[in-house]
Design a protein around this nucleic acid. Structure first.
Lengths: 335, 335
DNA sequence: AAGTATAAATAAAACGTTTAAGCAACTTTT
DNA sequence: AAAAGTTGCTTAAACGTTTTATTTATACTT
């Protein structure tokens, strides 16, 4: 059996004061509670001796706050999100907040479920990387006045704080990079996903090409998350048959990049001699290729920090109006 | 302001019964509480209508349990651990438990801190990937009879449940793989780390070589976690000067592998023609190399499952004796 | 000397659950 | 018909905090 916990009452008894006094001291409210220094010292001393640890249940019950935020990620085993988790935890800690991390695996059902799990833990707010069909769940949260910040993705018609990179702009730039290196037949591999961050990426690609009159709809290949391997393999093979020959490919996510490049190598395509490649987000694997792969670099750290900052703002004054923050990505090859 | 939460009392009022009745029904204790079906139905109905969500603080306070476990990882951005996090969450969920994930970044200080954070959240138990200097912290947990399971690493003299792969055996096998492909001068790059899982790996390597009389202490290079890049670069360069020429390298972790191979490529070493390589743990990057890299494959999924199972056992009956589970890794090239 | 301000501490309620114990009102057993 | 058991529900305490309102003691004004 766990040894019985020591409570405020035990300290009070030992020092010979009331519960209230102990609580006041322990919370550093000696000033407003006007506790004598000597008493405060004795209380702290006793607390140390008894090895007191506050009971968060009681505190949470009483205060209605948990000092915990819920972080809902789409795929924790994707290094992009893993890093986000890392930083968010770091920054939340600075505010004295802990983070409960959960994972949806891009499933909307699971997102709803995770929201409930976290709600039942009385988190004070959410940072969410929402799934495609998660709009309704988010709307519910907003209706309940729950502080929530969306990260990486957003719903254009939902009045909710979100931190995203300007995906349109980043993709525009990335595509231009290919154009600037003489590519004329540039393909896009992108998720078949209605979320704005994805459609923005496609738009950036398209407009860059349209501007130079190089846009060819048949070079846009849509990938389904659940059949990603086959879809990419099929797409690449089909692209290799195109005439005129495809000379550039823009991969719209790091997972697509990884699998796509693997497939290109398998088909003995030389990068960048035969086909030049640009990716969205870094992939560890890039370091190991005998060629350099330019990629869109999202400011993960700043995005994480901002999302924590904004959430804290919302928690503090839950009437806060939604804050939208759009950041700019940079290309890895110029920095 | 958040709309006021609906509590059991509200349901009781609406249906016209007592708190106790509602609680009993909500917890599925209608049988032992002997509540009539019709009343139970009305309560459930009302709960749904009012959109009732239980207050975990109150429940936790009363019950002394949180139905939450704390997961402390050494490095969440390492894909090995990220996957562990993923699976553990999955399995804990099956038990009706949530998981709070935290990260130590291999720092012992931080591990102590994280334990406290999680304790203050009243987690019912811990799954920990301990840091090198974390033995004392773990011992404290044991002394307090806190259910805890170590994962991936362990302290041989600590009576605590742990799930690990047989690192000795795996390394022995891995080294043999190089020996079997005619290597005679096989180097090892490994962390300068006293944790048993590391020393076991070294031992496996050593004994495989000693057995064939190929062991050369100067081919073992120790890497410090905090200066990993320089150390590996130095080590590789030094190894390339050895006579007779090094013809095989065993990298003892996936991070070391990644950086090590990068350095080899930088030095224009051809793999596997000049030097054959074997790694501990998979690295995503391996998929992209024009050559195949054999690696030790830990049964991540089973390890995760077992650690959850065992922790649950410990939580249920806190008198449970520590369970040690040693699993066997396989080589990636035969499966 | 009486009144008033200030300092230092306390009492007690409240947060929302769970659950042991209790109490009617029946039903069965003796 | 009294005793014993069963059924169905309620009462009330307890979990450990925080915090408002209150009390007591002391110091300062007039």
């Amino acid at each position: 059996m766990k040894t019985k916990r020591v409570s405020i009452k035990d300290i009070a008894q030992k020092v010979g004061v009331s519960n209230a006094t102990v609580s006041l001291v322990l919370n550093g409210k000696e000033e407003e509670g006007r506790i004598r220094k000597e008493v405060a010292a004795k209380v702290l001393q006793a607390a140390k001796e008894l090895n007191y640890e506050p009971n968060n249940f009681a505190r949470g019950l009483r205060m209605g706050r948990s000092n915990t935020i819920g972080l809902i990620l789409a795929d924790i085993s994707n290094s992009f999100f893993a890093h986000i988790a890392f930083y968010i935890q770091e920054y939340a800690d600075e505010y004295g907040y802990s983070v409960i991390i959960t994972n949806t695996n891009e499933s909307g059902d699971k997102m709803g479920k995770m929201i409930n799990v976290l709600k039942s833990h009385q988190v004070d707010g959410f940072i969410i990387v929402p799934t495609e069909d998660g709009e309704e769940d988010i709307r519910e949260l907003i209706d309940q006045k729950t502080p929530v910040v969306l990260l990486d993705r957003y719903f254009p018609h939902l009045p909710v704080s979100h931190i995203v990179v300007n995906n349109y702009h980043a993709s525009f730039e990335a595509t231009n990079l290919l154009l600037d290196s003489e590519c004329q037949n540039i393909a896009l591999l992108i998720y078949n996903n209605k979320l704005a961050h994805m459609t923005d990426r496609e738009k950036g690609y398209r407009e860059a090409l349209v501007k130079r009159n190089y846009y060819k709809p048949e070079l846009v290949k849509k990938i389904t998350y659940n059949t990603i391997e086959e879809d990419i393999s099929t797409a690449i093979k089909s692209l290799l048959l195109e005439q005129p020959k495809v000379d550039g490919i823009f991969f719209a996510t790091n997972t697509i990049s990884a699998i796509g490049i693997k497939e290109l190598l398998k088909q003995h395509v030389r990068i960048p001699e035969d086909i030049k490649v640009v990716c969205f987000d870094k992939n560890e694997a890039f370091d190991f290729m005998p060629f350099q792969i330019p990629y869109v670099q999202q400011p993960i750290q700043e995005m994480s920090r901002k999302s924590v900052d904004i959430l804290m703002e919302q928690i503090k004054q839950s009437s806060a109006i939604p804050t939208t923050m759009e950041m700019f990505a940079s290309m890895s090859n110029k920095s």
